[in-house]
Simulated assay, not measured.
Amino acid sequence: MNSPDNHWLTRPGTIRWLWIIGYTMLAVTVALQWLVPVKGHFGIDGWFGFGALFGFFSCVLMVFGAKLLAVFLKRPDNYYDV
């Protein structure tokens, strides 16, 4: 039961439940904006769901930025070999 192939985080059922919990938490967080009014400082940040969209697109931008940076910083596999 406790073999490395049967860790609780690698089971398909656990992965499915973690995705469901994550999506539910995201939906509840965004839906709470109907109950708690958000006063934006710049106008656009007061829009419904702005924080979720801003966070998502910021994450996407960071991933693409890291991929672009890796092109310039990448070294061959035998770079540290003597």
Rank of each mutant, 00 (worst) to 15 (best):
M1T: 13
M1Q: 11
N2W: 14
S3P: 01
P4K: 12
D5W: 15
D5L: 14
W8I: 14
L9S: 13
T10K: 10
T10N: 15
R11V: 07
R11W: 12
P12F: 10
G13L: 09
G13Y: 09
W17E: 13
L18A: 09
W19K: 12
I20C: 03
I20A: 12
G22N: 11
Y23F: 12
Y23I: 09
T24D: 03
T24I: 09
L26D: 05
L26A: 11
A27I: 15
V28F: 10
T29I: 08
V30F: 00
A31T: 07
L32I: 07
L32H: 10
L32M: 15
Q33V: 01
L35S: 06
V36M: 06
P37Q: 08
P37K: 09
P37C: 05
V38P: 03
V38T: 12
V38H: 09
K39I: 04
G40F: 00
G40D: 08
H41M: 07
H41Y: 11
F42M: 09
G43H: 04
I44T: 10
I44A: 12
D45S: 04
G49C: 04
G51Q: 14
A52I: 05
F54P: 01
G55T: 08
S58D: 05
C59K: 01
L61K: 02
F64S: 00
F64Y: 04
K67Q: 07
L68M: 06
L69P: 01
A70Y: 09
R75I: 02
P76Q: 02
P76Y: 07
Y80E: 14
